[in-house]
Design a binder for these strands. Structure first.
Lengths: 117, 117
DNA sequence: CGGTATATATCGGCGGACGTAATCTACAGG
DNA sequence: CCTGTAGATTACGTCCGCCGATATATACCG
């Protein structure tokens, strides 16, 4: 499972959302780093329904436009939990190994002394 | 950047290693969940050298077999740090959202009451 | 002598992300 | 009025990167 898919599941963890809503939620929770394209989004949504990690919650017609809501299934939540744990482990492994390294040139240096954190 | 690539960079963060050594290190640090295949490994290694995230450190000939060592470049370390931070953020976002959910059916239920955490 | 571990190269297949264009409605601006 | 933007989905084609398989070569163990 790749990043876009993971974030789609994460976005749905707070409750059912429709496709476009997922895009916005993902942009927000990824701090703007991930902006889902239509192709990625709806392709992933279809695939995830097929895998039963998400399901169609309900459909609405607003202003003549279809609005299809998706929700996370229990299987989807389980899979997400598993992947999240794994991701965190890997991130921690990488960060602790990098710390052990002498000097690491980082791209941005906002708040270098950690005063705001 | 996908999981295998990320783990290859992580494996090299502790110091230069040759291809086969990377495979072993990755299996170890991922707790056996990721076993790099030859195709994945050498393909990724070539690609990463081209992107200058890693570089060939040195080559040895042991028992007539070639042993090519790779090391993480500063650019590679920077990229890894960036991705690690991002991964951790995403993992945290997913986990906190899952906690907010009522009931989540997990595959394994080690320490169900969180006594050890 | 065959099997396993070490070590790398290469190729084809394919899943999944990407990019873009098309479609439709509502609404604001020139 | 026409254009542009935002909301919302569908439908294409492309491409990157992972995977499995195959090949090669040596050392060691039974």
């Amino acid at each position: 499972m790749q990043e876009p898919t993971f974030l789609i599941l994460t976005a749905l963890a707070t409750g059912p959302k429709h496709g476009y809503g997922v895009t916005q939620e993902v942009a927000e929770l990824s701090e703007g780093t991930v902006k889902l394209r239509a192709g990625t989004l709806y392709g992933a949504l279809d695939r995830l329904v097929e895998q039963e990690l998400i399901a169609v919650d309900r459909q609405e017609v607003v202003d003549g436009r279809l609005r299809r809501y998706y929700r996370l299934t229990d299987a989807g939540a389980g899979k997400l939990a598993e992947r999240a744990r794994r991701l965190r482990k890997h991130a921690e492994a990488a960060e602790s190994r990098l710390q052990a390294r002498p000097n690491v040139a980082l791209g941005s240096m906002a708040d270098p002394f950690g005063a705001s954190a």
